[in-house]
Amino acid sequence: MLQMPDFLTLGHVTRDLHSDGSFSLGGTVTFAALTAYHLGLAAAIVSRADQQLIPELSRYLPNIELQIQPSPQSTTFANQYREGFRTQYLHARAESLEISDVPVQWREAPIVLLGPLAQELSPDIVSLFPRRPGTILAATPQGWLRRWDADGRVWPTPWMEAERILPQIDVLILSHDDLLPFADGNRRDADAILHRWSMHVPLLVATDGRHGATLFRHGQTQRFPAYPIDEVDPTGAGDVFAAAFLTHLHKHGDPEQAIDFANCTASFSVEQPGIAGIPTTEKVLQRMNEKKNLTT
């Protein structure tokens, strides 16, 4: 019988292609579940992948409970960088997740994170997890903000279901940059979108890289600085942040403290490539104490 996890995340695990033809395992669910596990929670993933990748997932994701349905192909991304700008391509996409993919025993998990990457989660999946006291239902919507053309090039697309989904969840976490394409690159206009969305969800957190993060509560904002570090690889930092924020929020109930904890956790993740930098709680608390001592 499946044991109910503390932290459940849904979305596609991905093959992230490198220039030499190799790949690393990616996806919001990968980074988020590993972060939750490193922070002391029992974590689980619901996803879809191809028959070759499925047997390898337990090696990439040790100690993570997996419910992976087979798909003809796995979601596969490749990034091209030119003059500091990233162009992203979707080379393959796993089938969308179905409501039946989620084990009944897992549907009352204390923390649930919806982490779509390529429109693989229907808005209807939110109905599986009705809001209840003592639980958190959260989403990182980047996969609902993407479309792709016939060549697989990824483009931004408006989140048409935002105001339908937001009232049904407890927390929305996203990158400030995710909204810039819809605001002609104007940060003030992006903030206006965040402000509007925050009126429909109890907590909204917008990350902004080295600038830290902003907490929106029904239109009211608080900004929290990042931890200064030497960045090596920002891949997955937002997903690490999301899992750390939700973990701390569930344990302690204070969103302001949770953002500082998440900022610190994410600072470790960018210091090493891929999943290698995800820290333990002890490392995070040590860095937070060091920062506190420097400012007192």
Score class of each variant (00 low, 15 high):
140 T>V: 15
66 L>M: 07
126 V>L: 15
57 L>C: 06
150 A>P: 01
145 L>N: 03
71 S>L: 11
115 G>R: 12
100 S>P: 00
133 P>D: 14
32 A>K: 07
105 Q>G: 00
67 Q>T: 03
141 P>A: 09
130 P>S: 00
131 R>W: 01
37 Y>G: 01
121 L>E: 07
142 Q>L: 11
149 D>M: 05
28 T>V: 14
89 Y>S: 15
134 G>K: 06
104 V>Q: 13
56 E>R: 12
41 L>Q: 14
133 P>H: 09
146 R>S: 13
137 L>K: 12
30 T>Y: 04
86 R>D: 06
43 A>S: 15
63 N>M: 06
125 I>A: 09
82 R>W: 10
35 T>R: 06
81 Y>N: 02
106 W>S: 03
137 L>A: 02
118 A>C: 09
53 L>K: 10
55 P>A: 11
34 L>G: 00
76 T>H: 10
89 Y>Q: 12
79 N>E: 00
66 L>A: 04
125 I>F: 04
130 P>N: 09
93 R>F: 00
44 A>K: 01
112 V>Q: 03
77 F>V: 01
119 Q>Y: 07
34 L>E: 05
84 G>M: 07
31 F>M: 03
53 L>S: 06
104 V>T: 14
56 E>N: 02
57 L>F: 09
70 P>L: 08
48 R>Y: 04
64 I>E: 01
72 P>N: 13
86 R>T: 15
131 R>G: 00
109 A>R: 05
73 Q>V: 15
63 N>T: 02
79 N>S: 13
103 P>S: 13
102 V>R: 10
140 T>M: 01
111 I>E: 02
66 L>K: 02
100 S>N: 09
46 V>I: 11
88 Q>F: 05
61 L>R: 11
44 A>H: 04
134 G>M: 02
113 L>S: 01
45 I>C: 07
99 I>V: 13
141 P>I: 14
98 E>Q: 15
70 P>I: 10
62 P>Y: 13
96 S>D: 14
128 L>D: 03
119 Q>F: 01
75 T>D: 02
28 T>M: 00
118 A>H: 01
88 Q>D: 04
92 A>W: 03
74 S>L: 05
112 V>L: 12
24 S>Y: 05
84 G>T: 07
45 I>L: 03
150 A>K: 15
115 G>V: 06
86 R>K: 15
50 D>Y: 07
82 R>M: 08
97 L>K: 14
27 G>W: 04
136 I>Y: 01
103 P>Q: 08
145 L>G: 03
49 A>T: 08
90 L>V: 02
30 T>A: 13
58 S>C: 12
53 L>F: 10
134 G>H: 05
33 A>W: 00
105 Q>E: 14
79 N>F: 14
73 Q>C: 11
36 A>Y: 07
128 L>H: 04
65 E>L: 10
84 G>N: 08
88 Q>E: 13
100 S>H: 07
95 E>I: 07
46 V>N: 07
63 N>Y: 11
91 H>M: 12
141 P>N: 14
142 Q>C: 07
124 D>E: 15
83 E>L: 05
81 Y>L: 10
61 L>E: 00
116 P>R: 15
127 S>L: 09
91 H>N: 13
134 G>D: 01
127 S>N: 11
59 R>W: 08
